[in-house]
């Protein structure tokens, strides 16, 4: 069955099962591979995207239930024009293997959109779903604090 969805400002029509998770629609249907598969059971956060700005674990959202504008890491910013949160990630040299970082960045971006000046507890609560096996948590905290501080200056 054909479904129409909006991803990163573009309209796509895909002929895929309605119960297929958005994660796989993005990765295998639309070749948007920045969103990662980590667990498939909403336990690692690697697949985090935004739907109408809210963080969503895309492995749990069925294609038929996608009701809103989807933003993936590719839509947040580009290598030529990274978003402020991505710039903070670069400045703080957060990534090691990098596989979880798309999800980390999407979770952080959603946090700052909702709470521009988060407390440390709010940062931890917002990022608790996102697992990183390389252990980049110190750098993630620092990058989010820096991005928040920059938002305050702006």
């Amino acid at each position: 069955m054909a479904f129409t969805l909006r991803v990163n400002g573009q309209t796509h029509t895909v002929d895929l099962p309605g119960d297929m998770p958005l994660l796989w629609v993005l990765r295998d249907g639309l070749n948007l591979t920045g969103t990662k598969y980590g667990c498939g059971v909403a336990a690692c956060g690697a697949c985090t995207v935004h739907v109408d700005g809210a963080p969503v674990q895309s492995c749990q959202l069925a294609l038929a239930d996608v009701d809103g504008e989807v933003t993936t890491i590719e839509g947040l910013g580009t290598p030529e024009a990274p978003a402020p949160i991505q710039q903070a990630w670069i400045e703080h040299q957060v990534a090691q293997c990098g596989y979880c970082q798309s999800g980390q960045i999407m979770a952080a971006a959603a946090l700052l959109a909702e709470t521009p000046a988060p407390s440390d507890a709010e940062i931890e609560a917002a990022m608790a779903l996102n697992l990183c096996r390389c252990g980049t948590y110190s750098a993630i905290r620092a990058a989010i604090r820096a991005a928040a501080a920059r938002l305050q200056e702006a």
């Binding site: 969103t35 580009t78 990274p82 991505q86 670069i90 990534a95």
Partner: peptide
């Protein structure tokens, strides 16, 4: 590798 890893590329 940081720019690519921060932009999903």
């Amino acid at each position: 590798d940081m720019l690519a890893k921060a932009t999903g590329t």
